[in-house]
């Protein structure tokens, strides 16, 4: 495992992703999600919206890193808001 060069932040990041996946799977198994149409142009399930949210958040973070010197937690906060918005109305 040494060669994988773990650090605390990346470990936390992956633990977070894993937790979200487990939670979403359980939620899906108990209350199955139905495809529906929100403000996105396509019909999506909860899982689809989660994926769209995560992917767009990654690009938002990259944009912040590349184009500004604003501390990254601002981007993270924005993305959390965006994710909630997307999951509810997307």
């Amino acid at each position: 495992m040494v060669w994988m060069s773990w650090t605390l932040p990346t470990a936390a990041f992956f633990a977070g992703i894993a937790l979200i996946l487990v939670a979403m799977t359980t939620w899906q198994a108990i209350y199955p999600s139905v495809e529906r149409k929100g403000f996105l142009p396509i019909e999506t399930t909860r899982g689809d919206r989660l994926f769209i949210g995560l992917l767009s958040s990654a690009f938002v973070h990259l944009g912040f890193v590349a184009l500004s010197d604003v501390p990254l937690y601002v981007a993270t906060a924005l993305c959390v808001l965006w994710m909630c918005f997307l999951m509810r109305w997307g």
Binding site: W3, M4, W6
Partner: peptide, 12 residues
């Protein structure tokens, strides 16, 4: 596993 490793490398 490789993807995780790449992420680890990218911040160090």
């Amino acid at each position: 596993i490789p993807l995780m490793t790449v992420v680890n490398y990218s911040v160090q």
